[in-house]
Design a protein around this nucleic acid. Structure first.
Length: 152
DNA sequence: GCCAACGTTGGC
DNA sequence: GCCAACGTTGGC
């Protein structure tokens, strides 16, 4: 079982939107970055745990945790000519982009601010703090534990 | 809205 | 394959 951090813009789809979905479950799709795609396709599996991270918004930080409830499958949006993320180079036999389904496990009482993560020495090696612009990224088990204790 | 960082594209 | 130009992400 692996740990991940998924970024989302809450103005588009945030943790409150996930909470409002049937079974608090939604498709995590529209990933169009190769590094993120490779993690999704090759490493993310049913049962993995995910930090839901809110970006480009007022309260930037970790909003809660979710569980991956499907193995990766072809992101349907790549095949839809009406979709802004339609990819003419993708076919059902050779999809280029992938998604998974996630189910909300816990919405934190408060969004754990990015500012606090930056202050915590034990989190200095987090991918989130080391590399920008990666919407699906691995989280180390020890980082996961620290983050959950910080959220209490 | 600014702008730094970084990914992608395309000419050569 | 290099690298400049361009586009996007994302914090502030």
């Amino acid at each position: 079982m692996n740990y991940w951090l998924f970024k989302t813009e809450p103005d588009v789809f945030g943790i409150e939107d996930l909470a409002a979905c049937p079974q608090q479950t939604a498709r995590w799709d529209e990933i169009r970055n190769f590094q993120a795609r490779n993690y999704l396709r090759d490493r993310v599996r049913t049962g993995d745990r995910v930090l839901i991270y809110h970006s480009s918004c007022k309260d930037v930080g970790i909003a809660g945790i979710a569980e991956v409830v499907s193995d990766p499958y072809a992101d349907p949006s790549q095949f839809d000519p009406q979709h802004t993320l339609f990819d003419a180079r993708a076919t059902p036999g050779a999809p280029r982009w992938f998604c998974v389904d996630v189910r909300l496990l816990q919405r934190f009482a408060r969004v754990l601010p990015l500012k606090e993560l930056k202050r915590e020495p034990a989190l200095a090696e987090m991918v989130l703090l080391r590399q920008g612009r990666l919407s699906v990224q691995p989280v180390r088990p020890q980082e996961w534990e620290i983050l959950l204790s910080m959220a209490d």
